[in-house]
């Protein structure tokens, strides 16, 4: 299981680098999807298949589809690619990257110093266990997030209604509900 963990972790890091460096927005999104699936594999390797599957269903399967959907509607042409290339000059990314690399080195050094013990245990965590924890000690958090989602739903439905007087495209109108 440890090999699986490190392999998928490496894929996640590389794919995320791909997100930053790819010139085309759709290709960047593809890398992001791969990165999310790799993170799901990390969950699998850690013995939390429930979290891993949910990661794929919610992030890769729903949220990213909406991202791709919007980017495709905007349909960025070669112009966007040229602009992205102009932004990716070393003069622009070198400074922040060096600073971030120093912070990363500090983080790695701290992790190295401390005794993490057996990190990857691969012990199975079932959906039932997750459910009883969520609806037991963490019930208030679940209820609060339900409030938040309800508020978002009401807002989206209101915004969708406001534009309906001038007959919008049925696809976009439905997308918001």
């Amino acid at each position: 299981m440890e090999i699986a963990f490190y392999l998928s972790g490496g894929v996640a890091v590389l794919a995320t680098l791909g997100v930053i460096t790819s010139l085309h927005p759709v290709h960047a999104l593809l890398y992001l999807i791969v990165s999310l699936i790799a993170v799901a594999m990390v969950f699998f390797a850690l013995g939390a298949p429930f979290a891993g599957v949910l990661e794929i269903i919610v992030y890769a399967g729903a949220i990213m589809v909406l991202f791709v959907f919007v980017v495709m509607m905007l349909n960025p042409g070669p112009l966007a690619k040229a602009r992205e290339r102009a932004w990716l000059r070393p003069r622009i990314w070198l400074g922040p990257s060096v600073l971030a690399a120093v912070l990363l080195a500090v983080l790695l050094a701290t992790l190295w110093r401390g005794d993490p013990g057996p990190v990857v245990e691969g012990e199975m965590l079932t959906a039932r266990a997750v459910g009883t924890t969520l609806f037991g000690p963490w019930l208030i958090v679940v209820e609060l997030s339900a409030f938040l989602l309800l508020a978002a739903l009401v807002t989206a439905s209101h915004l969708g209604q406001a534009g309906s007087s001038r007959e919008p495209d049925p696809t976009t109108a439905r997308e918001e509900s």
Partner: peptide, 9 residues
């Protein structure tokens, strides 16, 4: 759930 994940992809 695995089926839902694959259907999403």
């Amino acid at each position: 759930l695995f089926f839902f994940a694959m259907a999403g992809i």
